[in-house]
Design a protein around this nucleic acid. Structure first.
Lengths: 206, 206
DNA sequence: AGACGTATCTTGACAATGTTAAGATTCGTT
DNA sequence: AACGAATCTTAACATTGTCAAGATACGTCT
């Protein structure tokens, strides 16, 4: 199952990338729990031990996917904030972008924030990637709450936490299932986003 | 490893309960991914096949734990709402209770909302238990947004979704790790709760 | 009390998984 | 051309989830 461009040789060529892609594909089909290193190797046309030359273990593959996901979120947030000048508009744009990222990239979101790898948030790469992606939100809120001279940043911190919790909560409830399961009838996520944005992130507060 | 009261006989006596308890213990120590049916059986002093007489498979054990967790959340929410008469106070009490449940019962929260069992939210027991636990929040918000005659419940629904997202987001960010990982210094969850409650659930909005 | 159906537990087995060690093949550089 | 490093394979190991078949105890009915 070598790539179209590459010769079908002993060496795969770009196995690392292929493994990550097939990992995503497999999680999409069978869920995070159904994801198996051996099958990813099989699908990638390679022996069960081959992945170990690119990732220390199964967890590290997921970690790599996670870091990549945060990179994508970072990019999405960057674009979202660039679309507006007014901080309030920026903020709402960032919120919408955050939730839509989770909705449109369920698998990434799962791997980034769930994936039941407990020591995930002790990995520096992940932490840094996450900080960077979250930076856009902080920068925007900073415009609304300029740094005070006495280092009293409570209002700023409160606003950041509130906004993050808000969008992350909606994203989680949607992606994980509870919202769709407990609410009868069809739900349109874009509507829901507008609802919480207009409820909590309007000029009343910002 | 029979219970103190029971004779050490061929039959365990209350294996189902023992398995659930040891399941929680094991997840607490090794995380959801480190949880193993065989070891739970081993710890419970029983053969690897014994659990299959009480749960159809590994997933069903987790499902049972999940349902139990929602029962506990329901109870906590009930108590929290009983402490106040004023709907606004009730609402804040419910929010605090929701987050503190997640913090104090990490394992349950994980199993209830994560646990990477994808078809979890297709289980009716789980859905019903979740609906019931969520009912307290809805009832309280209903007091603030009485049912309109034209069935236009948008304000009500918006408020429910906003509150739920808010507290669920904070709980998730705390329990899963990102908040503690990205924020430098020690964090006090009780402070954080007060922050988001005063930011979003004060009389300004309710 | 005794007999019998049922619930509960054990033993033994199977395929599948994560992971490692040892060896084979190719790449890149000198 | 040669050699070390990178990449891949084969073979093996312990462990896991799960099931079938058999053993043991419990409760109930007469």
């Amino acid at each position: 199952m070598a790539e179209p461009g590459s010769n079908d040789t002993y060496h795969h060529g770009n196995l690392k990338e292929t493994l990550m892609n097939n990992c995503l594909k497999m999680i999409e089909e069978k869920g995070v729990s159904g994801f198996t290193l051996r099958e990813v190797a099989r699908i990638s046309g390679v022996s069960p031990a081959a992945p170990y030359h690119h990732f220390r273990n199964k967890t590290e593959l997921l970690t790599a996917v996670s870091v990549m996901g945060f990179g994508m979120l970072d990019e999405a947030q960057r674009k979202a904030s660039q679309q507006f000048d007014n901080p309030g508009d920026k903020l709402r744009s960032l919120g919408r972008s955050y939730v839509m990222f989770a909705v449109n990239h369920k698998v990434y979101f799962h791997v980034m924030f769930r994936a039941n790898r407990e020591p995930l948030w002790e990995n520096e790469q992940v932490i840094n990637a996450a900080k960077q992606a979250l930076g856009h939100l902080e920068n925007t809120i900073r415009e609304l709450y300029p740094e005070s001279e006495e280092g009293n940043d409570n209002h700023f911190k409160a606003a950041v936490l509130t906004c993050w919790s808000m969008v992350h909560g909606l994203a989680s409830l949607w992606v994980d299932g509870p919202l769709r399961a407990t609410e009868p009838g069809k739900l349109d996520i874009e509507e829901l986003i507008d609802i919480i944005l207009s409820q909590s992130m309007t000029h009343k507060n910002f």
